[in-house]
Design a protein around this nucleic acid. Structure first.
Lengths: 196, 196
DNA sequence: TCAAAATTTAGACACTTGTAAAACCACAAA
DNA sequence: TTTGTGGTTTTACAAGTGTCTAAATTTTGA
């Protein structure tokens, strides 16, 4: 991104960013991301090519701005109070809520894009970044042999693994079931040798 | 891949595949993957463009063939005997060994490619696929509330998280330390509320 | 209200991509 | 030796990418 979305932007800039991200969201629901061209995006929102490159480096840049937009109204303050079961699950719940809110967008995206393709990877990766950061802060005064950064990545990874399973791999289980999966994964005390 | 590397290939085909993958390995150590063009690959191994497209769909296709080549001499049979601590760690050890074997290639790659960029994601993803498959087989007669496929993904994810930390994020800790991280992550019985 | 400053747009450019048709080659069977 | 077949290579092409310059337009501040 050439513009920092955190910063105050003038009305014109906001309008342009919105137009492009809406064009992208629209097209994502219609066809494979790889097949989407910059020309197409520009045609859809009726801006010249040069304007696109004025705001974004390329379509990857735009799509990551889209994920930012999509994620920015999640309230993940619970992560600040890590480490507790409750706060971890609270974060999980909130992202579950967010993904539910955009359920039909996600469904349409999954229809046209492979689950392990670049686009969905990128989507997951975006939230992974955000959550890892949050968890790392929350864990900052926690002490373990394992580095905090690694722990944060682990928790974020695992939370998103379950959410990907539910919303992108479309197993569409209830929040309670999803929670029970997450809890089992995180608490399962390693594979027992006496098992089976 | 237009050719199945499992199948027997005639000498010519093998030579061509090898030439292209070596060209790719070479260039990966020299510059960012995004900047590598098909023309460049062809120039390096002195094959015409059309030949490239004869064998691969695009450079992503080639690079995934490269990862396949790199990974194919890992002996991961231990995964068949899941679920036990030992077999999981045995798999971990073996991939650790494999990555150590290619330590300088990985270092060079990391020098030119962002840790969270497309290339390294793809690299991790390749091994994730392979390991998830193995674990899913190993777990097939194991019963839990959580779906087996999800469990397999969880173990594979976590193993690779640590390996990525060590080899790609270049914290370069010893096998023993790496093992202890993995064990702590997998056994840590959730975040305790009484903590800190 | 006007001129300077900044931003947006048009058009062109060099380059890459992936595909397709036709020429070319090697090697086997007749 | 001839002929056919399969694969490789040449060449050409349509389309997309990202960059650049200059012109047009908008914004800003005096």
């Amino acid at each position: 991104m050439k513009y920092d979305p955190q910063k105050k932007l003038n009305r014109n800039t906001q309008r342009t960013l919105k137009a492009f991200s809406e064009a992208m969201f629209g097209l994502l629901g219609e066809k494979n991301f790889e097949k989407i061209t910059v020309n197409e995006l520009c045609a859809r929102c009726d801006y010249p090519r040069a304007t696109f490159y004025n705001y974004f480096d390329d379509k990857y840049d735009l799509v990551s701005y889209c994920w930012y937009q999509l994620g920015k109204d999640a309230h993940l303050d619970a992560a600040q109070t890590l480490p507790t079961n409750e706060s971890l699950l609270a974060v999980f719940d909130e992202v579950y809520r967010l993904f539910t809110e955009h359920h039909d967008l996600l469904n349409r995206v999954v229809e046209h894009n492979p689950i392990d393709g670049l686009l969905i990877n990128d989507f997951i990766h975006h939230f992974n970044q955000v959550m890892t950061q949050l968890f790392a802060n929350g864990l900052s005064n926690h002490q373990t042999k394992t580095p905090i950064e690694l722990m944060a990545q682990y928790y974020s990874n695992t939370v998103l693994l379950v959410l990907k399973w539910v919303f992108l791999a479309q197993h569409n289980v209830t929040l309670d079931t999803a929670r029970s999966y997450l809890t089992e994964l995180l608490t399962k005390p390693f594979l027992s040798d006496a098992n089976n």
